[in-house]
Protein backbone atom coordinates (compact mmCIF):
# COMPACT_ATOMS: atom_id res chain seq x y z
CA UNK A 1 0.00 0.00 0.00
CA UNK A 2 2.76 2.36 0.99
CA UNK A 3 4.68 1.56 -2.18
CA UNK A 4 1.65 1.91 -4.45
CA UNK A 5 0.71 5.18 -2.74
CA UNK A 6 4.21 6.55 -3.24
CA UNK A 7 4.08 5.51 -6.88
CA UNK A 8 0.82 7.42 -7.28
CA UNK A 9 2.50 10.46 -5.70
CA UNK A 10 5.16 10.28 -8.42
CA UNK A 11 2.51 9.99 -11.15
CA UNK A 12 0.59 12.93 -9.67
CA UNK A 13 3.73 15.04 -9.43
CA UNK A 14 4.57 14.10 -13.02
CA UNK A 15 1.19 15.39 -14.23
CA UNK A 16 1.66 18.60 -12.24
CA UNK A 17 5.07 18.97 -13.87
CA UNK A 18 3.57 18.39 -17.33
CA UNK A 19 0.97 21.06 -16.59
CA UNK A 20 3.68 23.52 -15.64
CA UNK A 21 5.64 22.56 -18.76
CA UNK A 22 2.53 23.22 -20.85
CA UNK A 23 2.21 26.58 -19.11
CA UNK A 24 5.71 27.33 -20.36
CA UNK A 25 5.46 25.90 -23.89
CA UNK A 26 2.01 26.92 -25.12
CA UNK A 27 1.87 29.93 -27.45
CA UNK A 28 -0.96 31.94 -25.88
CA UNK A 29 -2.83 32.44 -22.68
CA UNK A 30 -5.92 30.33 -23.58
CA UNK A 31 -3.79 27.30 -24.42
CA UNK A 32 -1.82 27.84 -21.24
CA UNK A 33 -5.04 27.74 -19.24
CA UNK A 34 -5.95 24.46 -20.95
CA UNK A 35 -2.61 22.81 -20.22
CA UNK A 36 -2.51 24.20 -16.70
CA UNK A 37 -6.02 23.24 -15.61
CA UNK A 38 -6.34 19.72 -16.97
CA UNK A 39 -2.95 18.26 -16.16
CA UNK A 40 -2.73 19.89 -12.75
CA UNK A 41 -6.25 18.83 -11.75
CA UNK A 42 -5.57 15.18 -12.57
CA UNK A 43 -2.12 15.47 -10.98
CA UNK A 44 -3.62 16.75 -7.76
CA UNK A 45 -6.35 14.08 -7.72
CA UNK A 46 -3.73 11.36 -8.25
CA UNK A 47 -1.62 12.83 -5.47
CA UNK A 48 -4.61 12.85 -3.11
CA UNK A 49 -5.33 9.21 -3.99
CA UNK A 50 -1.70 8.35 -3.28
CA UNK A 51 -1.86 10.01 0.13
CA UNK A 52 -5.09 8.12 0.85
CA UNK A 53 -3.27 4.83 0.17
CA UNK A 54 -0.33 5.78 2.39
CA UNK A 55 -2.55 7.02 5.24
CA UNK A 56 -5.95 5.26 4.83
CA UNK A 57 -7.38 7.03 7.89
CA UNK A 58 -7.25 10.40 6.15
CA UNK A 59 -9.65 9.57 3.33
CA UNK A 60 -12.61 11.78 4.37
CA UNK A 61 -10.56 14.98 4.32
CA UNK A 62 -8.77 13.97 1.13
CA UNK A 63 -12.14 13.34 -0.50
CA UNK A 64 -13.32 16.79 0.60
CA UNK A 65 -10.21 18.43 -0.88
CA UNK A 66 -10.63 16.45 -4.12
CA UNK A 67 -14.32 17.30 -4.46
CA UNK A 68 -13.82 21.00 -3.83
CA UNK A 69 -10.88 21.06 -6.22
CA UNK A 70 -12.88 19.33 -8.93
CA UNK A 71 -15.52 22.07 -8.69
CA UNK A 72 -13.41 25.17 -8.09
CA UNK A 73 -10.51 24.57 -10.46
CA UNK A 74 -12.43 24.43 -13.76
CA UNK A 75 -14.63 27.33 -12.63
CA UNK A 76 -11.52 29.37 -11.89
CA UNK A 77 -10.13 28.62 -15.35
CA UNK A 78 -13.40 29.47 -17.07
CA UNK A 79 -13.67 32.72 -15.12
CA UNK A 80 -10.15 33.75 -16.17
CA UNK A 81 -10.83 32.79 -19.80
CA UNK A 82 -14.10 34.72 -19.84
CA UNK A 83 -12.43 37.77 -18.31
CA UNK A 84 -9.75 37.64 -21.00
CA UNK A 85 -12.29 37.34 -23.81
CA UNK A 86 -14.31 40.26 -22.48
CA UNK A 87 -11.16 42.33 -21.99
CA UNK A 88 -10.48 41.79 -25.70
CA UNK A 89 -7.60 39.30 -25.66
CA UNK A 90 -7.80 37.36 -28.94
CA UNK A 91 -6.89 33.68 -29.09
CA UNK A 92 -3.79 32.68 -31.00
CA UNK A 93 -4.23 31.04 -34.40
CA UNK A 94 -1.63 28.98 -36.15
CA UNK A 95 -0.17 31.20 -38.89
CA UNK A 96 -0.94 29.78 -42.35
CA UNK A 97 2.70 29.92 -43.37
CA UNK A 98 3.52 27.59 -40.50
CA UNK A 99 1.81 24.64 -42.18
CA UNK A 100 4.73 24.15 -44.54
CA UNK A 101 6.76 23.34 -41.49
CA UNK A 102 9.17 25.85 -40.07
CA UNK A 103 12.52 24.60 -38.82
Amino acid sequence: MNLLGSLLLVVGALFCFLGALGLWRMPDVYNRIQAGTKAVTLGTLTTLLGVALIQPGWWPKLLAIGGLLLITNPIGSSVIARALLRAGVDPWHRPEADKRGTP
Binding site: I33, Q34, K38, L70, I71, P74, I75, S77, S78, L85
Partner: peptide
Protein backbone atom coordinates in the same frame (compact mmCIF):
# COMPACT_ATOMS: atom_id res chain seq x y z
CA UNK B 1 -21.57 20.57 -18.24
CA UNK B 2 -19.24 23.60 -18.44
CA UNK B 3 -16.91 22.08 -15.83
CA UNK B 4 -16.90 18.71 -17.57
CA UNK B 5 -16.03 20.34 -20.88
CA UNK B 6 -13.20 22.30 -19.29
CA UNK B 7 -11.64 19.13 -17.91
CA UNK B 8 -11.88 17.00 -21.05
CA UNK B 9 -9.75 16.67 -24.17
CA UNK B 10 -8.67 19.99 -25.61
CA UNK B 11 -11.68 22.07 -24.67
CA UNK B 12 -12.13 25.00 -22.27
CA UNK B 13 -15.46 26.66 -21.52
CA UNK B 14 -15.00 30.40 -21.93
CA UNK B 15 -18.55 31.69 -21.57
Amino acid sequence: LANSITLTPGTLTVE
